[in-house]
Amino acid sequence: MKKPIARKKAAVKRKPRAKNKDPFFSGNRLRFSLIVFFIVLLFTVGYHYRNGLAYYFSFKSDKTLKEKAEAKRISDVRNYQVLQKHEGKVVGFDVSEFQGKIDWTLVDTVEEDYPLQFVFIRATAGNDKVDTQFKRNWRGAKRKNIIRGAYHYYRPNENSLEQAELFIKTVQLKKGDLPPVLDIEKLPKNQSIDSLKVGLRRWLKRIDKHYNVKPIIYSGESYYNDFLKDEFSEYPFWIANYNFFVEEIGENWLFWQFTEKGTVPGIKGNVDINIYNGTPKQLGYRTMN
């Protein structure tokens, strides 16, 4: 029997795969994707801050042309957004000699809409500095019936008890005034952090003993988290945080300084604006008896 002749299969020619000349994340598609992304981002941010932007550009329909012109002076949209979110809470401010001579007869609101009900006034700094405007500001706030409080700017490299004595000598608190405030913002140059904390506690205890009230500690949020939060948790805190995306007061913050760019009648230039984490009645309980 003859063996069948094996036939060779004809080779199938395959077309070479076409090279991807235009991958998704390159060229025109990449540019288009980026444009769409930024448009969506701008729309999202614009929608989130729509009320503040409307106020800034004077698009509110219930304002007269004159009011719209005055509203345009507002430079920080976030200020309005934050204030609007804290309806019912107490708004205040803080000042020092850097604001110059304040016309207290004109001080009434921030951004023309929100009544100012309390003020913190710098009294002293370090162991030898008395704020040149303290007495004038202290009297002015009293005449204006604004709840007032005094603060001391702490210098880490100076004796803590000498700093406390200067504050005591300068500030006489009366019924209705807020507790004393220790303003700590700087790190020491010639001592350890542990030594700094010892000094802070000495100042706080001396002030507590003299005025018979627990002082308030002021600091930036990062400083607070890194050095103060755990070891000084028994004290109330006044926190500074100007982050554009932070719009709510912290749960454990007694006061929040949310901007340094407020506008207040009677004061030239920018002013620090604060929110108290409570109602006017609750703020009254915080004052001296």
Rank of each mutant, 00 (worst) to 15 (best):
E70V: 07
S160Q: 08
D113S: 12
F245G: 05
P16M: 08
K101C: 03
A69V: 14
F59A: 10
E260A: 14
G199Q: 06
K261P: 01
T44K: 05
T279P: 02
R50Q: 13
F118V: 00
E185R: 01
V77C: 07
F59E: 12
E158A: 08
H48E: 02
K9P: 04
M288R: 13
T287P: 01
P16Y: 11
K209F: 03
K13I: 14
K19I: 12
K189N: 12
N157G: 04
L182D: 10
G176S: 08
P23M: 05
G126K: 08
T259Q: 01
V271E: 02
K197L: 09
L254C: 10
V45K: 01
N20I: 15
V246A: 12
Y80N: 09
W138G: 00
F227P: 04
K89L: 14
Y151D: 01
K281S: 14
Y114C: 00
I39A: 04
E158M: 09
P265A: 02
W238R: 11
I267D: 07
V40S: 08
N20F: 06
D194I: 06
N51K: 13
T64H: 12
I217P: 03
I249E: 13
K68S: 13
Q172Y: 09
G262S: 08
P265E: 02
D208K: 15
K281Q: 13
E251F: 01
A240Q: 04
R286V: 09
R202T: 10
N212H: 14
Y224N: 12
Y49W: 11
K72T: 12
N137K: 10
D103E: 09
Y235K: 14
F93N: 08
F167V: 05
T124N: 06
K72R: 15
K101N: 09
I5H: 03
L196I: 03
M1N: 05
K89M: 15
L196H: 00
V82G: 04
K214Y: 00
K281P: 01
G140C: 01
N127R: 09
E185G: 01
A123V: 10
A123D: 09
L283A: 07
E70W: 07
I102V: 14
K205Q: 13
L83Y: 05
V264Q: 06
K281G: 06
G88W: 12
K268R: 08
K19M: 04
K214F: 00
F37S: 13
V12E: 00
F98E: 13
K101G: 04
L166E: 03
W138Y: 02
K261N: 08
P16I: 11
